[in-house]
Design a protein around this nucleic acid. Structure first.
Length: 459
RNA sequence: GGCGACGUAGCCAAGUGGUAAGGCAGGGGUCUGCAAAACCCUUAUUCAGCGGUUCGAAUCCGCUCGUCGCCUCCA
């Protein structure tokens, strides 16, 4: 199996530190508003990677942090008149719901920044001891970037290049403009914790270093996140971790997903151009959204559009139809299932090439349909389709929940319509079908019987 | 200005040296009372442009144009 690592900018043969086990750390959210489809894209990507690794026999330990204290949370909590902890808790719950709706499996553990303060303080202390960090007069602590030989290796920058950028402000208390805060001295009214350097709160980058170390050990196999985190976040994580522990590399495979665009720009909370996951789910199903994400390679940017989403949604429906067809009782289909599965594996083994993997799913669906039409037993094909879909977290569930209360009435109408058709009263029969369709119930006449299903969410 | 991606049919998107997967949409057909679904056929002599390397390039190299991301919080 090959995985592209941002650090080497190459596909590397995947070998976890401990055979058969994978420590995976994915940067989580800062919960101060509802998550958007860009977050969905990222977490679907890592959910698929996790599921696939497990399918390949690895035992995966998956950790995802929650940044439950930061400037935005504090600002927003203030304007809502509630404690920061309450705000972040509320949106973290909302986030977990969204993830569940998208069939994204929860992390094994979601460490919160505010619950890991002692570990972070310990890390700062070690870095100060080793001269990699220093406390300022105001009680903040900064990482000394000049103390690290290869600072900038992940993002391909060096300190001189960065100094050439015009947007750097020279802070009074920093030794070097690129030094970054690990501990921020408390301002009046802000949530704060005590530390050897005074009251304050942890810097953003520090939590991931401390948590990765605590939960996954000195070396992480896979560390994931959006490409927008490469610099400064992940660069600084490397600096803190490698300088504190002396263990190199901090991360064996850096995996970054491309960003979701809305129109010509990145979808983001700060730009405000976003579609929340809850909004998307009003129109599309989890399978539709997952297929949309997987139809493009995870390292490429993807543009959210109604047209693209609808195409994915149609595709999802096609797959679940093929999976749920009743199989004729004929001779079994003679397809080489092992060859199909091994094509799927080699696509996924090649840096998780989901577009290629998905194309195999569609090929399989067509084989199922033609097999059915030819009177073959398609059960084994359907089992394979279901198996491959479950590796990708595609549920294949009917697009809508069963409208239990309406069921007897729908069936009554279908029965009535059947009699009308027998009497060749087609005009009235078609009228029933059209009206049901407008109500979201689609009828399909087959030889001898009429099937029905509910249309996707609100389409 | 520095760093990094990307540009393949109407749309989305694989393919990284051997002659263009797959999905959606469109056209024609089979089936059907008509639909729907499904199936079959069909839609890029061509991969942003221009040069170069090669027996051979969408794939490698150079240049040009265009788009995006990061350099400030961000999945």
């Amino acid at each position: 199996m090959k995985i592209y690592s941002t650090l080497t900018r190459n596909k590397e043969e995947f070998k976890p530190l401990k055979e058969g086990q994978v420590g995976m750390y994915v940067c989580g959210v800062t919960p101060y508003m509802d998550a958007h489809v860009g977050h969905a894209m990222s977490y679907i990507t890592f959910d698929v990677i996790r599921r696939y690794l497990e399918h390949r026999g690895y035992e995966v330990k998956y950790i995802q942090n929650v940044t439950d204290v930061d400037d935005k949370i504090i600002d927003r909590a203030l304007s809502h008149g509630i404690p920061a902890s309450e705000l972040s808790e509320r949106y973290f719950e909302s986030f977990k719901q969204d993830m569940a709706s998208l069939n994204i499996r929860p992390a094994e553990f979601f460490p919160k920044a505010t619950c890991e303060i002692p570990e972070m303080i310990e890390m700062i202390r070690r870095l100060i001891e080793k001269n990699h960090a220093y406390a300022s007069k105001s009680g903040s602590v900064y990482f000394r970037v000049s103390s690290m030989e290869d600072y900038g290796k992940l993002s391909g920058r060096n300190l001189d290049d960065m100094m050439a950028g015009a947007r750097i402000e020279v802070g009074d208390e920093k030794e070097h403009p690129m030094d970054f805060a690990m501990w921020k001295a408390a301002k009046p009214g802000e949530p704060h914790w005590n530390s050897p350097w005074g009251a304050g709160r942890p810097g953003w980058h520090l939590e991931c270093s401390a948590m990765a170390l605590k939960y996954l050990g000195g070396s992480v196999d896979i560390h994931g996140g959006g490409q927008d985190l490469i610099f400064p976040h992940h660069e600084n994580e490397i600096a803190q971790s490698e300088c504190a522990t002396g263990v190199k590399p901090f991360v064996r495979y850096w995996v970054h997903n491309g960003l979701l665009k809305l129109g010509e720009e990145k979808m983001s909370k700060s730009l405000g151009n976003l579609v929340t996951i809850k909004e998307a789910l009003k129109t599309f199903t989890a399978d539709g959204i997952r297929l949309f994400v997987m139809s493009s390679h995870y390292r490429n940017p993807l543009t959210y559009s109604r047209e693209a989403m609808e195409a994915a949604q149609r595709g999802a429906e096609r797959l679940s139809k093929a999976a749920s067809l009743a199989s004729p009782e004929g001779s079994p289909s003679m397809l080489d299932l092992e060859a199909i599965e091994s094509d799927f594996i080699s696509a996924m083994d090649d840096d998780f090439d989901t577009p290629r993997a998905v194309s195999i799913l569609f090929d399989l669906a067509r084989q199922i349909n033609t097999g059915r039409d030819g009177g073959f037993d398609i059960t084994s094909l359907q089992q394979l389709l279901k198996k491959l879909c479950s590796i990708l977290g595609i549920t294949l569930s009917a697009t809508e929940e069963d409208p239990v209360e309406a069921r007897p009435f729908i069936e009554l109408l279908i029965d009535t319509r059947k009699r009308l058709r027998e009497q060749k009263q087609y005009q009235l029969a078609d009228e029933i079908r059209d009206k049901l369709s407008k109500l979201g119930v689609v009828l399909e006449d087959k030889p001898g019987s009429t099937g029905w299903h509910v249309k996707g969410p609100t389409r």
